[in-house]
């Protein structure tokens, strides 16, 4: 290991790390909005709804093809459809497309895991359907979504490394460019591991913090002490 080279390379990798953070953060934000909305709507649909089939098909397609295929598909098909973007935004679109598929499932599972009795009880207490969904079901479902979504967050950061194949200058691409110049493979790979690990470990810490402190209300335990 050449530590002198590692100290030389570190500042040159930081812009790449920043692009990795940017591309993952933008995709996460977009995918969160679209995915949770679609997942929530899907969970209140029956299979008779004409929108349920295409949504399920989309989720199936995303979950059953590798991310590298989706990235190449976006890279090759968007220009054919007349949409010319630079590699960064193609990457954002590909990652968002991928992440929405998973987040629909996360949101749907979380909402459906809240007991049906909750909805029925709220309706019988005189709440409207909308009030029941927003005031009773969603707060409990959001809490259950947190582990899934933070998991998805770290998946997204890791998936962003695959954007190197369509020349997005994120951490892995910057590092492989340096590799080709210097042939210091192990040093650069160790540096990448050092930069990715805290990012992803930090996110799983954030997840458990959110789970235990911010969303720590007991929405799921039956309040037996109030039954007289």
């Amino acid at each position: 290991m050449d530590f002198g080279y590692m100290i030389y390379a570190l500042p040159r990798l930081l812009p790449g790390l920043w692009v990795t953070i940017e591309v993952s953060a933008i995709s996460l934000a977009l995918a969160l909005i679209i995915g949770v909305t679609l997942g929530a709507s899907r969970s209140f649909m029956t299979m008779r709804n004409p929108l349920a089939w295409p949504l399920d098909g989309y989720v199936w397609l995303v979950r059953c093809t590798p991310i590298i295929v989706q990235i190449y598909a976006a890279y090759l098909l968007l220009p054919k459809a007349g949409i010319r973007l630079d590699a960064f935004w193609v990457g954002v679109i590909a990652l968002t497309f991928n992440s929405v598929g998973y987040q629909i499932e996360i949101a749907r599972a979380a909402i459906q895991s809240v007991g049906k009795g909750q909805l029925e009880a709220s309706l019988s207490l005189g709440l409207s359907q909308r009030q029941a969904v927003w005031l009773v079901i969603m707060p409990q479902a959001l809490k259950r979504m947190i582990p899934g979504i933070t998991n998805e967050m770290s998946h997204l950061v890791k998936a962003s490394s695959v954007l190197s194949v369509i020349t997005v200058l994120e951490l892995h691409k910057v590092a492989s460019n340096l590799q080709i110049q210097s042939f210091k493979f192990l040093e650069l790979l160790a540096l990448q591991a050092l930069l990715y690990l805290p990012l992803i470990l930090g996110m799983s810490r954030l997840a458990s913090y959110l789970e235990h402190n911010v969303f720590a209300f007991e929405g799921t335990r039956p309040h037996t002490e109030e039954v007289r």
Partner: peptide
């Protein structure tokens, strides 16, 4: 914690 692509490399 490390992307799969990096591990493969």
């Amino acid at each position: 914690g490390v992307p799969q692509l990096v591990q493969i490399a």
